[in-house]
């Protein structure tokens, strides 16, 4: 049993950073939604504000790390062109070149032309939205509980971050299954 460097980075990118954000999303959204003065005590409101700030900044950092490792570490291996002499129409010769492996067959081509093409772009919306949410929580602190309009806006941006990350994450999982990086 062994894990190659490429497999390890794919794991760090998807099952590490990416999964942390997707799994923690529900907790973050619940935290934003329930941050109402009528639902917490004074000591509770300060603790909740601090927890939201730390949680949202950690999630923002994690989603930045997800897209940075995905684009700058894993993606170049995915899109690397095979050397001269390898027939790009023969899938069996392209196992180390996932992009070309997928494109070699009509039955798998759409994992690249739709799946990867969507994933590689839409994912970058997630860290932008998540950073805004983190900033909102630290700028307002405990007073965020008295600003329902801002809290609603932050929740919408947080959901947008999740939608972008979930689309990218789902296709990442499918593509890795169809054409794993070795």
């Amino acid at each position: 049993m062994e894990v190659t460097t490429r497999e390890l980075w794919t794991l760090i990118h998807g099952m590490g950073f990416g999964a942390i954000f997707l799994l923690a999303f529900a907790g973050g959204l619940a935290g934003l939604y329930s941050f109402k003065p009528e639902w917490v005590t004074v000591s509770g409101i300060n603790e909740r504000a601090r927890r939201l700030q730390i949680g949202m900044w950690v999630l923002a950092a994690v989603v930045w790390l997800t897209v940075i490792t995905g684009t700058w570490v894993v993606y170049p291996w995915y899109r690397a062109a095979p050397p001269a002499g390898i027939d790009t129409k023969v899938a069996a010769q392209l196992l180390n070149y996932p992009r070309y492996f997928l494109l070699a067959s009509k039955t798998t081509a759409e994992w690249h032309t739709f799946g990867m093409e969507w994933k590689e772009h839409v994912a970058w919306l997630a860290p932008i939205a998540a950073t805004v949410v983190a900033f909102v929580t630290s700028h307002y602190g405990a007073t965020l509980s008295k600003h329902p309009q801002i809290r609603r806006a932050a929740a919408i941006f947080f959901i947008l971050a999740f939608v972008a990350a979930a689309a990218a994450g789902a296709f990442g999982a499918f593509i890795t299954k169809a054409a794993p990086l070795h």
């Binding site: 005590t41 004074v42 409101i45 772009h121 970058w124 919306l125 932008i128 939205a129 950073t131 805004v132 900033f135 909102v136 700028h139 307002y140 602190g141 405990a142 007073t143 008295k146 600003h147 801002i150 806006a153 941006f157």
Partner: peptide, 30 residues
């Protein structure tokens, strides 16, 4: 449950609104 009050200084919304607009511009640019 405890009934308490706390007074906190409110903050201006300018920087947060700046982040909403900046996010929209960044996303639209993409």
């Amino acid at each position: 449950t405890k009934a308490e009050q706390i007074e906190l200084a409110d903050v201006a919304n300018g920087p947060v609104n700046a982040s909403f607009i900046a996010a929209g511009i960044g996303a639209a640019a993409l």
